[in-house]
Each structure stands twice: as structure tokens, then as C-alpha cells.
Design a protein around this nucleic acid. Sequence first.
DNA 1: CGCCGCATTGACGTTCGTCAAGTCTAGTGG
DNA 2: CCACTAGACTTGACGAACGTCAATGCGGCG
Lengths: 241, 241
Amino acid sequence: MNPISIKVACSNCNLRELCMPLGLSESEMVQIDDVVATRRKIARGEHLFRHGDKFNALYAIRTGFFKTRISAEDGRDQVTGFQMAGEIMGLDGIVSDHHTCDAVALEDAEVCVMPFDRIEELSREITSLQRHVHKIMSREIVRENGVMLLLGSMRAEERLAAFLLNLVQRLHTRGFSQTELVLRMTREEIGSYLGLKLETVSRTFSKFVDDGLVEVKQRHVRILNADGLKRIVNSQNCHSD
Amino acid sequence: MNPISIKVACSNCNLRELCMPLGLSESEMVQIDDVVATRRKIARGEHLFRHGDKFNALYAIRTGFFKTRISAEDGRDQVTGFQMAGEIMGLDGIVSDHHTCDAVALEDAEVCVMPFDRIEELSREITSLQRHVHKIMSREIVRENGVMLLLGSMRAEERLAAFLLNLVQRLHTRGFSQTELVLRMTREEIGSYLGLKLETVSRTFSKFVDDGLVEVKQRHVRILNADGLKRIVNSQNCHSD
DNA sequence: CGCCGCATTGACGTTCGTCAAGTCTAGTGG
DNA sequence: CCACTAGACTTGACGAACGTCAATGCGGCG
């Protein structure tokens, strides 16, 4: 259950430009290497942290894919996000010193453990790191605003189209195809994220296939008509095509 | 249109414990007074900032009541939050140096303008301020997680009950009644926040009245049975009472 | 091979949205 | 003091979108 710990460095990490600020001096880079205390491997299905765990560190994903999820007292839960390489998890824990959500690996993964005390310490010295931390938190706030718009005012097709476009765009940033992707999550997890039931997700996929927008084979998705998906996302109730 | 600017101090502000960290020394307090550059008055219906505006500062509400809102390209919009005295607005602007949402006063209001450069500068020196800024951002992330749960998995009654309980709890923190409140927003704005249409909000209010949970006279709400509302919030589909 | 988890599809029901009519209240002006 | 108006709110009838329940299909793995 408990993970291997390996000492590592950001300075030669190929995800550096995703996790860390640009334009650091040599000496600053040496200091920042020191922020990443260890790496930690998480097997598929395992938790990186759970609701209620003490907050100690932020986590940068090196490899693998995660979901974060919150649970209501009655057992309902809601997927609040899917995270991939270069993205940061754990920001929810800062306010109360305890995590308020679960982070679960959807495939075998490795994360960089960055003790938050060290981050705060160093960001008092390195202005660009301070700014970077603020931006990461602000970016998460803006992302969640977007999800609120999706959940509060979009219909099923719009939600799924927005979801696919967002995923493929983030994968493209990481050097993957703009048109092909492999979903790491189940229909149920997609549904939870989008505020839909898994059957609705499945039916909506089928509709997209019928309309020639995508090909779907289980979790393999090929986008045939990205513009068509974009048109769905911001077309409100226009059923005219 | 353009606001009066008055030089002021946090050190004798009665909202200090809401906006600012506790346990500051005398000299730190003097420095922090300097963070609040000016105050600014916003008339009901006016914008504090708009989507696209350059980001310069965070805003602490001194008096009044705001909504924040994001707009999709097709004109749909979504209320992302209601903010009251002591709460901080503007965090969305940090990541891209421009605001991504609108902040609109729902009643005549006054805010403290805190230039973000100054905040960053000072939080490099004052550890408790640095921690405080991080907590404020983390709190917003956690709040939005809760809204996602609400929008993604609750039914209309649960959403409205959760909304009322949240509002009254925040007002109570500020010294107002635990059972009575005046809504500063329209049914439509509540609906936008909760992902419902205004008619559904109105009907749900009426149902709560029928069930003896609340009294409603236009925007005046009296909570008669807070436990009943709490039971609705985490009762999933239990119609057994 | 057979099992298990995930996905698809259909039939049906519920919740909420839509459309429309009507009410209430505050503010205005005679 | 009383119409008059405008905006917010309420209520009803109806329909669409999505959820629920159930049957079936598919693919990977021991």
C-alpha cells in the first residue's frame, strides 16, 4: 500500500513548463528542485489522498490520470475534475489543513510530492514562484466557474461536447493527437462530472456517432468533426441542424 | 460613474477578522493598512468589474451585496456566487491578468481596493498574510466544489434548501438573525445560481411554505424549521416525510 | 470457456422547463 | 387619495429532457 519514495529534480523534468514558472535563474532552479521532496507511485484505483486526510503537500502529476471527487453525507458523490500530467492537486486542503475531496488514480500514476510549507517558504524568496502559485489557484477557480456554467445551464449534448473538446485540447497541449483520445474513466464517472446519469452519457455518445461527429469504440474516441462539437457547445437550444 | 476614493485603515475596521489574518503585530498592522489603497462605492446595479477588464486588485466588501456571473458566448449566463461583507472578490483575474467574470452590486455597496502587487509584496514579508491569501483562494475552490455537488447531483428542493441554509449561516456569522433574512437577489438570479428556472424557484418556495418550513413574503424569508431544511438537503430522494 | 464489469439500448416515469395568465408591490403622477 | 404602470413573483397546464429500471451485448481476464 505505501509508496516508494525517490529523490528527484524539476530541473530536468520534461513537464517543467506545466508545473513550474518560466525564466528561473540557475540558483533558483536549484532551490526549486528542493521543493519536490519525493515522488510517489499510486496504483490504479488507489487514493492519493482522501477527504479528511491531513493536508501537507501539493501534488504535481508526472504520469497517469486522476479524478477528484467530493461526497455528500448521504453517500452521493460528484466528480469535481479529471487531472492529467503536469496538473496540480491538493489545493482544496489549504484552507482547513485537511483535504475535503478524494483523489483517485484512474490508471497507474506517479506524482511529485511538494510539501506546502516548503512552497510557501520558497515563494517568499522567489517572486516568480509566488506568482505561479497564485496563478495555479486562480486557474482552478476559473476552471470551476466554467464547470458551474456547464452544470447550471447546458443540456446533455452540450455538456458532453464541451467535455470532449476540453479533454482533447488538454491532451493536445501534452503532445497527443487533436482528434483521437482514450478515455481513462467510465461512463459513470463522466456522468458524475457532467451531472448526468451514465445511460444519458452513453445515449449522447451514440447520438454523436449517428450525427457523424465522432467514432466511439468503448473508451476509444476519434473526433471527426470538431467544429460540429463546438457548434453544439454554444448553440443553446438550436435544433436546426 | 467613477467612484469616490477615501483613504482608510484595516486596523480599526470591524470586518478585520473576516478579511485579514489574526495575530498581527503592531508594525505588521501598519503595513497592512497600506494594502487597502482606497475604498470605492458601487451603486446598486453597477459593475465592480467586468469580464475582460484588466486585473489589478482584489476587493474586500465593506458593505453591500454582490453577485458574480460568467457569460457564455451565446449569451447564456450563470451566477457563480453571491458575496457579502467581509468576502473577497476578484480572484478569477489573477491567472490571465484579466477578469473572467462580472461582479455586480445587488445593493449600494462599498469595497476596499487592494492592489494585488501590494498584496504579493507584503505577503513575502508577513508570513501570516501569505498563508491568509492562500487560504482565501483555497476556500473559494472548496466553495465551488460544493456548488458543483449541488448543481450536479441535487434536485430542486435540495438546491434551494442548501442555498437558504448557506445564506442564513453566513449572515449569522455577521451578527444577523439565524432565522430571518432578506434576499437581495431576484428569483431569476437565485435560479441562475442554482441551475433552475425562476418558476421552479418560486414553486419550490411555495412548497416549503406549504410544508411549514419557511414563511416567505416576497424577499423576506423566515426559517421556521431549519432541521427540516437540513433533512431535505441530505435526504436524496427520500419522500417518506 | 465462463465470468464480471462496463456499455448500450429500449420502455416508461419524473422532474423540471416552457408558455401563458394573472397577482402583488412599490413607485409615479394626477 | 387614488388610478396607473412596471417589474417581480406566483400559479397552472403541458411537454421535453433526462432519470429509472431492465434486458442485452461486448471485451478482457483468470
